[in-house]
């Protein structure tokens, strides 16, 4: 139980995927102009990351390890994730049209979110069991959601403020992210 708690606190705050491990930077910079879309992206990623942790765990233990195919890990995982995203998209369309509408464009983008492949690889590397893997996936994704929503709300403010000409756009956004990462470093004393 303690172990799981450590994974949750670690994933959301201390080893935050975006702020300290640099996973999922592309959507973090790309889909963070508005708070609502950032939240939608966060939710979609949480869903996919939890499922990806679960399925890649089964693939690793029951397919790759027994047949000595560990070197196929990268190819197997990325194909599973790409398929998973597709399945989630089709399923959502049938089950909940409103959620599908809300997430819409962000779903296919998740395939190339390195946080998803990253969490699958990290689970294997850390030797997590089934429950730990899924908890790690969910807490990592919640950390991603926290970071992207915070960042989007700062950027909404930045858009209307008067910045030096050269800071406009990405340089300003990156320096803002740097200051946020500095704040997240403060959590490192927690564990």
């Amino acid at each position: 139980m303690n172990n799981l708690l450590l994974i949750v606190v670690g994933g959301v705050l201390v080893n935050n995927f975006v702020m300290s491990q640099f996973l999922g930077i592309c959507p973090f910079l790309g889909v963070s102009k508005k708070t609502e879309t950032a939240l939608g992206m966060g939710m979609a990623v949480t869903f996919v990351m939890a499922l990806a942790s679960l399925i890649t765990y089964f693939i690793q233990t029951y397919l790759l390890l027994p047949f000595g195919l560990e070197y196929m890990q990268t190819i197997a995982f990325i194909l599973v994730i790409a398929m998973l995203v597709q399945v989630v998209e089709i399923a959502l369309k049938k089950i909940s049209a409103s959620l599908y509408q809300a997430l819409g464009v962000y779903l296919p983008l998740i395939t190339t979110n390195c946080a998803v492949l990253g969490v699958a690889l990290l689970n294997v590397r850390e030797g997590y069991n089934l429950i730990e893997s899924v908890v790690n996936g969910i807490s990592g994704a919640l950390g991603f959601t926290l970071a992207i929503v915070l960042f989007a709300s700062i950027r909404e403010r930045l858009a209307v403020s008067n910045m030096p000409k050269w800071m406009n756009g990405f340089p300003g956004a990156l320096i803002t992210a740097g200051l946020m990462a500095l704040a997240f470093q403060g959590f490192s004393g927690l564990l």
């Binding site: 340089p171 300003g172 320096i175 992210a177 990462a181």
Partner: peptide, 20 residues
Amino acid sequence: IATSPAGGFLFLGILLLLVN
């Protein structure tokens, strides 16, 4: 700070600013 995670964001931001 330059080798910490925050430094990564800050220094890339500054380099981009100079390139711009």
